[in-house]
């Protein structure tokens, strides 16, 4: 039971953060592609902007890893 709750907690940590990243990237990506369509030279900057929210998922992963490693019985 305890292991199950730990797994659910870890899953929520990575899952919710990935969901948040996805929502943010969807909006940023749409705007960035619009900008690139107008000015193709902005592609590098556009990738940069789209990539920024990914850190949220990485932090979620770190929390999930810590939940599993530190709380595992």
């Amino acid at each position: 039971m305890s292991n199950g709750l730990i797994a659910i907690g870890a899953g929520l940590a990575i899952g919710l953060s990935a969901l948040g990243t996805g929502l943010a990237q969807a909006r940023i990506g749409a705007a960035a592609m619009g900008a690139v369509a107008e000015k193709p030279e902005l592609l590098g900057r556009a990738i940069l902007l789209v990539a920024i929210p990914e850190t949220l998922t990485i932090l979620g992963f770190a929390v999930a890893a810590m939940v599993i490693v530190l709380l595992k019985v």
């Binding site: 990914e54 990485i58 932090l59 992963f61 770190a62």
Partner: peptide, 12 residues
């Protein structure tokens, strides 16, 4: 700090 933690992705 977030920039440094962002490198966790290397492991992830």
């Amino acid at each position: 700090i977030t920039n440094v933690l962002s490198y966790l992705r290397l492991a992830a």
